[in-house]
Structure formats: C-alpha cells, structure tokens
Amino acid sequence: MSVINDTKAIVIGMWTTWKHIFRRPVTLQYPEEKRIPYPRYRARIVLTRDPDGGERCVACYLCSAACPVDCISMQSAATEEGRRYALWFRINFSRCIFCGLCAEACPTMAIQMTPDFEICNRDIMNLVYEKEDLLIDGCGKSPEYNFYHHAGIGVTQRRGAGLEEKPPVDVRSLMP
C-alpha cells in the first residue's frame, strides 16, 4: 500500500538523518587547517614555457574564444624570427570562474591551471594579471611538449627539419 510505503520512506529518511547527527563532521576549519589540492586542481592560471625556454603561448586566441566569461584578452604579434607570441596577455581573475575551458582549448599546452586557489584581494585591479604575472619559468604539465617541433612550418627549426616532416621539395626537379 502506498501509505505504508510512503511512511516507510519518510521513516527511513528520518532515520538516516538521525544517524548523521552523530557522525563526525567532514568540515575542515579552512584558514587554520589547509587542504592540499590535487595537482589537477583548477585554480590560478599560468602561462608555461616549452623545454627550450621559449614562451609556449602563440596567442592563437582559442582560450579567449573558449572562455565563457570573457576574462582573457590578448594581442598576438610576431617576433623577428617569425614566431607568433602574445604582445600582451591579460586574465581578469575577478571575472574568471576557473572552469578550465581555456586550458582545455590550448593547443600548445601553454595555459595551465595550478592548485593555488588563494588569490583573493581587496583591490580588483590586483586581480587583473598581465603576461608578466602569468608567465612562469617552467613547463608545468607535459614537460616534453614543444608545439613548434610538431607544427610543420619550421620557425624554431629549419623547414622540413621538424618531427614528422620530409625535407623540402625541390620544385625544379624533374624526377617523378
């Protein structure tokens, strides 16, 4: 009968909550007790460098396009050797929701998230990070990856000298 079933359901529910009253709370008293987040925790964003020390970010605008709150802005430019880089790169952490879509969108593994979540500040402008605040001296996760070695257009190496590339074609050759 539904009345019995319903009553039973309510009683079971009440019994469950009753048991929980006497359980040890899981709360951590945050400022005094700190929890170490996992390495893949999604907090403060950094820009990493490739193993050769060059900036990984090529300012492709994919992170700013992926960002649902439009907190990333940048201007791309070219260095003299033709390497694309971010002339300026700005993340407004007062707007950021730490969703991780930017890091997911990044094709060069440049933008990565760190477990450092304690970046609160009373002045909003202190939460607007420029490129020099974001750029770190390290590779972060995936330490071997170097985008330009796979890109297939040279830039950091001779054309045709990258991984998975043949040497350049001699267009004047008559060989089949």
Partner: peptide, 10 residues
C-alpha cells in the same frame, strides 16, 4: 547547528 550536523558539517 542541527542542520549542520545532519549534513556532516559543523
């Protein structure tokens, strides 16, 4: 407080 304890909080 009681709701906290029911929900395993403080």
């Amino acid at each position: 407080k009681l709701l906290g304890y029911i929900q395993d909080r403080i």
